[in-house]
Structures are given as structure tokens and as C-alpha cells.
């Protein structure tokens, strides 16, 4: 019940953002608000098992959202470095690829997803496969320095941040 309610409220907020500027009750017309309420109730009923699996409400804690916004700063810096790195490799063609394995030690699905996406967008690494029992990630590394890397080399301190956000 609670998961359906939270999903409906989030869907309604997204609907309001997408229909801003249609009328004069604040920013919305009355027809849009009624349609939004009905549609978000339907979305909440059908989507209640997708957003909050196993009745798990840790992500509603605002502290985690503040950590997430703070995490964007080192992430964007790493992303800019990644692009300059790829630019260098596109122009010179100097690559030394390989697939390595790391054990980040994260437990939740959300944490692993965030880490895999962050790894894909940051310097020289691309997540390929995951072992779902032990949560080990297999990573394609464009410039292999060691065959058994430690975590810091591959994902520059992201697991610490993600443990604070999602665990």
C-alpha cells in the first residue's frame, strides 16, 4: 500500500514537471491536474512492485539524496578526465586492452547498478559482466596496468561514495 502511494506521488511530480506552463493555477490548468492525478494513481497501482522491491524504503531518506548530489561533483570531474583520455587514445591509437575482475563488496542491486554505470562513464573502463552470487564485476579496461588490480585503480573511490548513498 505504502509503495503504491509513494510511486503515485513520484509519478505525479514527474507529470507536473512535464506539463508546466499549460494554465493559470500556479503553472497548470485544472484539466491537466485532474488527468495527472488519475494517471499517477493507475501508475502507482501497476508499478508498485518495480520501484520498491521487498518494501525497502531506504532511498526515501533525504540524507542519501544530499550525498547523491555531492557525489555528482567528483563524478563529473572523472567523466571529463575520461573523455580527454579517450580523445588521446582515438588520436594516437595506443591501446592495451583486457578484461579484469574486481570485488567492490556492495550488496544491494541499486548500489551495483550505480557502480556499474559510474564505471562505464569514467576513465578507460567499461563494465561487461556481473557475477550475481558474489557481486563481482568484470571490467573491460582499455589500458591494463596490472592483471590483478586493486579497486582504487579502476574506480577511483566511487564504492565509498556509493556505500554511503545506497547501502
Amino acid at each position: 500500500m505504502r509503495s503504491a502511494l509513494v510511486t503515485a506521488v513520484m509519478a505525479f511530480i514527474l507529470y507536473l514537471i512535464l506539463t508546466v506552463g499549460t494554465g493559470d493555477i500556479l503553472f497548470w490548468s485544472s484539466a491537466e491536474i485532474v488527468a495527472g492525478i488519475l494517471l499517477s494513481i493507475v501508475a502507482g497501482i501497476f508499478g508498485r512492485k518495480l520501484l520498491f522491491k521487498n518494501e525497502d524504503y531506504r532511498m526515501l531518506n533525504p540524507k542519501r539524496w544530499i550525498y547523491f548530489i555531492a557525489y555528482l561533483c567528483p563524478f563529473l570531474v572523472a567523466m571529463a578526465r575520461a573523455n580527454i583520455d579517450v580523445a588521446y587514445r582515438v588520436i594516437t591509437g595506443r591501446i592495451n586492452p583486457g578484461i579484469v575482475k574486481i570485488s567492490p563488496g556492495l550488496k544491494t542491486d541499486l548500489g551495483i547498478t550505480m557502480l556499474a554505470n559510474s564505471i562505464t562513464l569514467t576513465p578507460g573502463t567499461l563494465s561487461v559482466e556481473i557475477n550475481e552470487k558474489t557481486n563481482d564485476l568484470y571490467i573491460h579496461w582499455i589500458n591494463v596496468k596490472h592483471k590483478e588490480p586493486n579497486i582504487e585503480e579502476v574506480c577511483n573511490g566511487f564504492p565509498k561514495w556509493i556505500r554511503r548513498i545506497a547501502e
Binding site: 583486457g98 575482475k101 591494463v144
Partner: peptide, 9 residues
């Protein structure tokens, strides 16, 4: 992967 030095997977 071509020219791979290591393929743990």
C-alpha cells in the same frame, strides 16, 4: 577482445 593482454571472464 582483440589484442587482449588478460581476459579474466
Amino acid at each position: 577482445p582483440k589484442r587482449a593482454v588478460v581476459d579474466k571472464l
